[in-house]
């Protein structure tokens, strides 16, 4: 059974702030959803290997060649805050 404390902890790991009402709601939702997820436990998977996806390809490499990159101004045009050359952030030190 998933508790409110667990939801708070998971939200913390996810970098999400939840209000008391949200914690309440998500705890309630997650009870049903986790119970549903638990239903996979009744399938015997002994000796079965995991699949990361449906195809057989594995570690696709390409040559490490220098190619034209994106224009800096174009990339910075989507930034919430920049000084024209780099992303702007508040100081990292406390």
């Amino acid at each position: 059974m998933i508790s409110k404390e667990e939801i708070k902890h998971i939200a913390d790991l996810s970098m999400l702030n939840l209000s008391e009402a949200e914690i309440e709601k998500y705890t309630e939702n997650m009870k049903d959803i986790v119970e549903f997820a638990n239903s996979i436990n009744s399938l015997d998977t002994d000796g079965v290997t995991e699949s990361a996806f449906a195809l057989d390809s594995y570690n696709v490499f390409r040559k490490d060649e220098i190619k034209e990159s994106f224009d800096r101004d174009l990339l910075l045009s989507n930034a919430p805050s920049s000084n024209g050359e780099a992303y702007s952030l508040p100081s990292m030190t406390v």
Partner: peptide, 12 residues
């Protein structure tokens, strides 16, 4: 948010 929480939970 609900799916991020579920995903983080199953990976934790």
């Amino acid at each position: 948010k609900r799916r991020i929480i579920l995903g983080t939970y199953v990976l934790s």
